[in-house]
């Protein structure tokens, strides 16, 4: 079965209850053609395991990396991705859209 937003958040709760460090990433804004709608979640643990998606695969790697920092420090971060980004060659959105992703630790 394909995981839905609710399964992803249920997993976040279960992971945290099991004592794992967990971060929740949420798409909070999109411009133009964006692969995943506002409200989509990616849940990440301290080991870099993740569930869900914020972009259908384009920028998950970068979000997981940032999530590691968020889990370590506890300070939430707002990330922005788009083709205009200088790192576009690495983590841009090929569809031409732009997205803003909020990453916070689950405490």
């Amino acid at each position: 079965m394909i995981s839905r937003e609710d399964d992803v958040l249920a997993a976040a709760e279960a992971w945290r209850e099991a004592g794992r460090g967990v971060a929740v990433a949420t798409v909070v804004e999109t411009w133009g053609s964006a692969p995943r709608p506002v409200g989509s979640h990616l849940v990440i643990d301290a080991d870099g395991d993740f569930l869900g998606s914020v972009s259908g695969g384009c920028v998950e790697g970068a979000v997981v990396e940032e999530a590691g920092e968020v889990i370590a420090t506890g300070a939430p971060r707002m990330l922005e991705f788009g083709v205009a980004d200088e790192t576009a060659w690495r983590v841009g959105l090929s569809c031409g859209g732009r997205i803003r992703v909020y990453v916070e630790r689950l405490d």
Binding site: D6, L9, E13, R105, L106, D107
Partner: peptide, 14 residues
């Protein structure tokens, strides 16, 4: 995200 808030939301969904 606060765990207690997430729990409340997950419980409502169930």
């Amino acid at each position: 995200m606060r765990l207690d808030v997430l729990k409340a939301m997950n419980a409502a969904r169930r």
